[in-house]
Structure formats: structure tokens, C-alpha cells
């Protein structure tokens, strides 16, 4: 009996050890998330929080802003929808930030859908129609969203991202989104799940065909809800360009948002035996004495909690009852034979 309880104690020890090792990774991630959260809330809750961003704005997208405010005015007019041959062909040597003046002629309206000749889209814009759940607009805020490959760098295993992965707003807020595309390819800011009586197909959509800014305004309903925001270009959401808008206390989290919510389906990572500097005894590098080398090598091999170790742990757990049985059998045997 003493032997058995000793074994169980040992088993428990192993389990806790494994669990803590795993939890440590997890908590590390969590603290990251929390940092993100606080950053976000710092951003989003302040009503006109341009103070933090103004410098960037001045540098990058003033022209873009000017352009999109033109969009609003242009909205109510009927325009000639035909597109004319450009007098001069843009040779596309650089980006064409500056070329924004006088584009009002090319806007197209279709189900509240505006597209200009550069392919900049605004869909589901709503300046004044209150959701039935709201008696008035709670606050008017502006949020700048940046999109680009560079924002994915902090999330290993992703390619594209927004600069933030979550925004928090009050119920019945009127939000003006400035969507800044910082890549030289198309990106979208697409929000789903909005009330269909206000938003065609329940969505609000901004799209930039290149490095430009597009601005659109919408009003969120009163209910606590979490809305998916993503880019629908093939593989952009899957490879990181995904976020959520939390209204009030929010609803259920959207999965697979980088750094924020876990993936539904996870890749399996296996440690690879890749060459390391310490493996190489080159004359140029600092040579470690043999004792230090042995110690560091030992830890190099043992510290990372690899997938294989996890499998080992699972295997151990499954086999433990079996071992326990063998031991008890032996104990039963002992008195008989003795």
C-alpha cells in the first residue's frame, strides 16, 4: 500500500510539473494579451483620441482624409458614371498618394455602395439612421485602422494584420472609421453581422486598392455584441488580418484573432534538428570549456517543452494506471509466495 501511494504521489508530481510548464507558456501569452487590451482600451475609449496619432496622420494620410470627405458630399449627387480615358497615363513608378483631387466625378452608387475609379469602396455607410434599439447616439468617435504586412511581424506565423485586433465602443456609438492601407496591394475592412434593415447584407465595408485612406461612418446597435472585422481577400483573414469590434460588454469572442483568441484548428509543430551556432566549434567564435558546453548542451536539449515531450507526458498518463496495476499485482503476489 505504501508503495502504491508513493507511486501515485510521484505521478501527481509529474502531472503538476507538466501542467505548470504548459501554463507558464500560456500565462506568458496572456500577459501579452492583457497588454494589448489595455493599449486598446486606452485608445478606443477616449472619445477623440487623435492626440496619439496626429503626427502619423499629418505625415501619411491627410490627402486621403480630404478625399474621403469629398466622398460624403458626392454621395447625394447623381453623376455621370462613365469613366474617361486619362489624358496622361500614370507610369506607376511610385505610389500615387497625391493624385486625389477631382475624383468626385467617378463615384458610383449602387445599393449604398460607392466605388471610385481607383476601386476605393465604401459600402453600408450610415450617418443618421438610428438602429431601432437606440433612442439616440451615445457618442461620436473616430477610429483609425491601419492595415499592412508590417503589423503582422509581432505575431509569428501570420502575414497580414490590422494595427489593432480589438476595438471597444459604447452601444449606439456613431463611428467614423479611417481605414489606412499601408501596403501596395488591396486590403479590406469588412464588418459582418450588423442589422440587415440598416446595412445591406448586414455588413459595413471599406476597401482600398492600394496605399490610400478611405473613410466611412456607421452606427452600432445598442445590444452587447462582438462583430467580426476582417479582410476577405483570399487567405488574408486566415493569415492574420482579423479583428473584432466589441460593443458594450460584447458577445462571444471571434476565434483565430492573432494574439487575442485561440485558433479553432491548430497546426502541429514539431521540433526540427536545425544547425545551431553552439554545435559548431569554429576557431573564430568563443570556445567554451568542456564543462560549460556540457551543461549548456544539456539545457539546450531539455529546456524547450516540445511537442514530443507533450506526447510523452500523455503517454505516461495513459500508461500510469497500467503500471499501478502491475505494482499492485506484485504486492498481491508477494504475500502468497512468501
Amino acid at each position: 500500500m505504501a508503495k502504491k501511494s508513493l507511486f501515485i504521489a510521484f505521478l501527481l508530481g509529474v502531472i503538476t510539473l507538466g501542467a505548470t510548464a504548459y501554463a507558464q507558456q500560456d500565462t506568458a501569452d496572456h500577459s501579452d494579451h492583457e497588454m494589448d487590451h489595455s493599449e486598446h482600451s486606452g485608445h478606443d475609449h477616449s472619445e477623440h483620441d487623435h492626440s496619439e496619432h496626429t503626427m502619423d496622420h499629418d505625415e501619411h494620410d491627410h490627402s486621403g482624409h480630404a478625399h474621403s470627405s469629398d466622398d460624403h458630399k458626392g454621395m447625394d449627387h447623381e453623376h455621370d458614371h462613365s469613366m474617361h480615358m486619362h489624358g496622361e497615363h500614370e507610369m506607376l513608378h511610385g505610389d500615387d498618394h497625391s493624385d486625389h483631387a477631382g475624383h468626385d466625378d467617378h463615384h458610383h452608387h449602387h445599393d449604398g455602395h460607392i466605388m471610385d475609379h481607383e476601386g476605393t469602396h465604401i459600402m453600408g455607410q450610415n450617418f443618421d439612421k438610428l438602429p431601432s434599439s437606440c433612442s439616440s447616439i451615445s457618442e461620436e468617435i473616430e477610429i483609425t485602422v491601419r492595415a499592412g504586412a508590417k503589423y503582422a511581424k509581432k505575431f509569428p506565423g501570420t502575414t497580414f494584420a490590422f494595427d489593432q485586433q480589438q476595438w471597444r465602443v459604447k452601444p449606439c456609438s456613431k463611428i467614423t472609421w479611417h481605414f489606412v492601407n499601408e501596403d501596395n496591394v488591396r486590403h479590406q475592412f469588412m464588418m459582418h453581422g450588423l442589422p440587415r434593415y440598416l446595412y445591406h447584407l448586414g455588413m459595413f465595408h471599406l476597401e482600398n486598392t492600394g496605399p490610400r485612406t478611405v473613410t466611412g461612418t456607421m452606427i452600432v446597435p445598442a445590444a452587447d455584441e462582438t462583430y467580426l472585422v476582417h479582410c476577405d481577400i483570399s487567405q488574408h483573414m486566415e493569415k492574420g488580418m482579423k479583428a473584432q469590434l466589441v460593443v458594450g460588454n460584447g458577445g462571444e469572442d471571434i476565434p483565430s484573432i492573432p494574439g487575442l483568441t485561440p485558433y479553432v484548428i491548430n497546426d502541429v509543430y514539431e521540433a526540427e534538428d536545425l544547425p545551431k551556432v553552439s554545435d559548431k566549434d569554429d576557431a573564430g567564435g568563443k570556445k567554451k570549456d568542456s564543462f560549460t558546453k556540457q551543461i549548456t548542451d544539456f539545457f539546450n536539449d531539455n529546456v524547450p517543452f516540445t511537442g514530443l515531450a507533450l506526447i510523452g507526458l500523455l503517454f505516461g498518463l495513459v500508461c500510469a494506471p497500467l503500471f499501478a496495476k502491475i505494482i499492485t499485482f506484485r504486492k498481491k503476489d508477494t504475500p502468497e509466495t512468501a
Binding site: 458614371h81 462613365s82 474617361h84 480615358m85 458610383h108
Partner: peptide, 10 residues
Amino acid sequence: TNNISMATLM
């Protein structure tokens, strides 16, 4: 795409 109407483009 620069020489056609928006309706065709759509």
C-alpha cells in the same frame, strides 16, 4: 477598365 462605364465594370 478605364474606358468603360461603371455599369459594365460592375
